[in-house]
Design a protein around this nucleic acid. Structure first.
Lengths: 248, 248
DNA sequence: GATTTATGTTGACCCAGATCAAGGCAAATT
DNA sequence: AATTTGCCTTGATCTGGGTCAACATAAATC
C-alpha cells in the first residue's frame, strides 16, 4: 500500500489567518491580473479589490443564473464550478486553484453560468466587474490581461472537450493527474506529490466516469507502479508512463 | 422517406460573387464586433479589416501551432476547427457560421490552438490582432466586445462539455440540431428547415460518436416523427419532443 | 453515361465502463 | 469508545454504442 509520509502542504493553513497582502507583495502576482501594470495603475486596481472573501468547505461563492457582479481570483484553497445538466444531474466544469479566475464565462450573459463551491477552507479576491470595466477604459493592459485569461480558459476547455469525447477512462484520469501536476508546478509546488482536495466522486463527475471506475483506476495505476495513492495524498511515481497513458 | 423540396439557401451563393460591404451596411453588424461603436471608431475599425478572405471546401484558414496573427469572422459559409488529439485522431472543437469568431482561444498562447478548415465555399473578414489591440487601447468598447465574445464561446464550450460527458447519443444529436436551429434563428433564417453543411462523419466526430451511430439516429428520429432528413437537407418536425430528447 | 471515389446506411457482434449490491474505513459527533 | 455519516473499494452483471463488414447511393472525374 501507499506510504503515509507527510505531504507537502499546498495551501495556506486555514487556522493561521493572516492579513491579505496587496497585489505587489502577493505571491500570485505573476499569475494574476496585475501583470505588466505600472505602479500607478496597479494602485488603482488595488483599491477596487475586495480581499476579505473567505469560504468554508461546501460554501457557495455564487449560484448559476444569478446576476454577474464580480470576477474572483482564488488566493488559497480550491473551488469547483458545477452546472446543472438538463436531466437534473450536475457536471463539474472546472476546479480552480490559487491564481485562477472564476466567473469569466458570465461576462457575456451577465449571469453566472455555473455554481461555484469551496472544496475546503479557501480565500479569494473579488473584482467588482463594473468598476473593473471603468478602470479598463483607462488601462488597456488590464483589458488585455482579462482577454488573455479568458482565452487561456477557452484553450484548456477545448482540451477537456477532447478528453471527454475521444479518450478512454485510463487516459482521462492520467490526463487529469498530469494537469494538476502542471498547475501545481506553475505555483511553485511539487509536481509529483500533492493532495487531492476533491473527493473521488468529484473527480469522477468531472471526467464523465463513475466513482467506481475512478476507484478501480487508482487501484490499477498503483498496482502498475504509476502512482502511489493513500486517501487524498498522491505521488506520481512514473511520469513518463503516466504521460503515455494520456493517449487513447 | 423525406421529401425533396428545395431548402432555404442559407448562405451567399458562391457563384454570385459580390463586393464585400463595409461594417455599417453588413447584415451581420448586430452579431459582430462593431456593435455599440460610434461612427468615428467604426471607421477606424473598418480600415484595418481585410474583407478579401475567400476559401473553398477543405481549404485551411490556419493550422494549429502556427503564430496567431488575426481573428476571423465568418461572412458566409461554414468553417470547422479541429485539434489533433494525442492519439493521432482529430476532434472537431467547433463549427462556425456567419457572424461567429474564429481564433479567440489563440490570444493567450499566441499560437493558433486548432486548425480551421472551410466546409464549403466561404468568405470571412480578417482582423489583424496587433492592430486590433492598438485600436483597442483607444476604444474601450472594442475590448469589451472582444471579451464578451470570448466569454460567450466559453459559456457554449462548457455546455458542450456537459453534453459530451453526461449525455447519451440521443441527447447529443438532439442538442446539436437544436443548437444549429438557434444559431440560424439569430441570423434570421428558418429554425426548422436548413442544410447540414457538414458531412455525417464531422457531426459524429464533434459529438464523440461513431458515424454509424449518427446514421442510425437520423433514421430513428425520422421514424419517430422528430425530423425529416434527406441527405444534407433537414426539417425539424417536432421541436418540443426534440427538446425533450436533449435530456439524459 | 461509365467509372472512380467519397459518403451514407444497415446488420451482427462485442466490450469498456455503467449500474447494482455489499461491505470497509475514516472523520466527525456524542 | 461507540455511533453516525460520508467516502471509498471491490465484485457481479448488464448494456449502449463502438467496431467490423458489406452494401447503397451520391458526387466527382473521365
Amino acid at each position: 500500500m501507499a506510504t503515509n509520509n507527510p505531504v507537502i502542504q499546498l495551501f495556506d493553513n486555514p487556522t493561521q489567518r493572516k492579513d491579505p497582502v496587496a497585489c505587489d507583495s502577493c505571491s500570485l502576482y505573476s499569475l494574476c491580473l496585475p501583470l505588466g501594470l505600472n505602479n500607478h495603475d496597479l494602485q488603482k486596481l488595488d483599491q477596487i479589490i475586495d480581499r476579505e472573501q473567505r469560504y468554508q468547505r461546501n460554501d457557495r461563492l455564487f449560484r448559476a443564473d444569478t446576476p454577474f457582479t464580480a470576477l474572483f481570483v482564488v488566493r488559497s484553497g480550491t473551488f469547483k464550478t458545477t452546472v446543472a445538466a438538463s436531466n437534473g444531474r450536475e457536471q463539474i466544469t472546472g476546479f480552480y486553484f490559487p491564481g485562477e479566475f472564476i466567473g469569466l464565462d458570465a461576462i457575456y450573459t451577465e449571469n453566472y453560468q455555473s455554481t461555484a463551491t469551496a472544496l475546503e477552507t479557501s480565500t479569494l479576491c473579488a473584482l467588482p466587474f463594473t468598476r473593473l470595466q471603468t478602470l479598463g477604459a483607462d488601462i488597456p493592459q488590464l483589458q488585455i490581461n482579462m482577454l488573455r485569461r479568458s482565452s487561456k480558459e477557452l484553450a484548456s476547455d477545448k482540451n477537456l472537450m477532447i478528453l471527454l469525447s475521444k479518450n478512454n477512462a485510463d487516459a482521462r484520469l492520467a490526463t487529469f493527474l498530469l494537469s494538476l501536476s502542471a498547475r501545481f508546478q506553475e505555483r511553485g509546488f511539487s509536481t509529483t506529490r500533492f493532495r487531492l482536495s476533491m473527493p473521488r466522486k468529484d473527480i469522477a463527475n468531472h471526467l464523465g466516469l463513475a466513482v467506481e471506475t475512478i476507484s478501480r483506476l487508482f487501484a490499477r495505476f498503483q498496482q502498475q507502479g504509476l502512482i502511489d495513492v493513500a486517501g487524498k495524498s498522491i505521488t506520481l511515481v512514473d511520469l513518463p508512463n503516466l504521460q503515455a497513458r494520456c493517449e487513447h
